[in-house]
């Protein structure tokens, strides 16, 4: 191979390297801009979701005056950002559970007459004491909380 050809090849290689370098540089810069613009926008839009997640991470809720709830009835309260059910059974037992149906997320209700937890959306039925899914489409039981009655108040906590 002549000197000339070698020299030409070297020049060509250098040009290719320079081109690759410029391409990489522009790519890195574009990525930097995309991140610098994209991250604040994502953080901005996701603020409520982050707040909700923070609210949902609580482990205990104190229901003022809830001890007055008559036996054989129930009330819905907010546990974090989700609705939950506090049931005062006829036999005096206190039970608290998630009020979000495990099927498609409707809010369930306590039926005093049938003493069961029922979801009106698709007819899911849960046990009013254990939260177990008895019939209908729900795939999983409702999670049950620990309940403690303190004077006039009721404290519900994740068990």
């Amino acid at each position: 191979m002549s000197e000339f050809v070698k020299e030409q090849e070297a020049i060509e290689q250098e040009t290719v390297m320079r081109r690759t370098f410029i391409r990489l540089g522009i790519g890195a810069m574009a990525t930097g801009y995309a991140a610098a613009i994209g991250y604040p926008i994502y953080a901005y839009l996701s603020t409520p979701a982050k707040r909700a997640a923070e609210a949902g991470s609580i482990t205990e809720v104190r229901l003022e005056g809830a001890a007055k709830l008559p036996a054989g009835s129930a009330m819905v309260f907010k546990f974090g950002h989700k609705p939950a059910l506090l049931i005062h059974h006829r036999d005096g037992r206190w039970v608290a559970m998630d009020a979000v149906c495990t099927h498609l997320g409707c809010t369930v209700q306590y039926e005093t007459d049938n003493n069961r937890v029922f979801c009106a959306c698709h007819g899911g039925v849960y046990d009013a004491v254990t939260g177990e899914n008895i019939s209908g489409p729900p795939p999983k039981p409702l999670s049950v909380y620990r309940v403690e009655v303190k004077d006039a108040n009721v404290v519900v906590a994740k068990s």
Binding site: P40, I41, A43, Y44, S46, T47, K50
Partner: peptide, 9 residues
């Protein structure tokens, strides 16, 4: 003041 990066937008 409350929303993340809201001031920037």
């Amino acid at each position: 003041y409350d929303i993340r990066f809201g001031w920037l937008i």
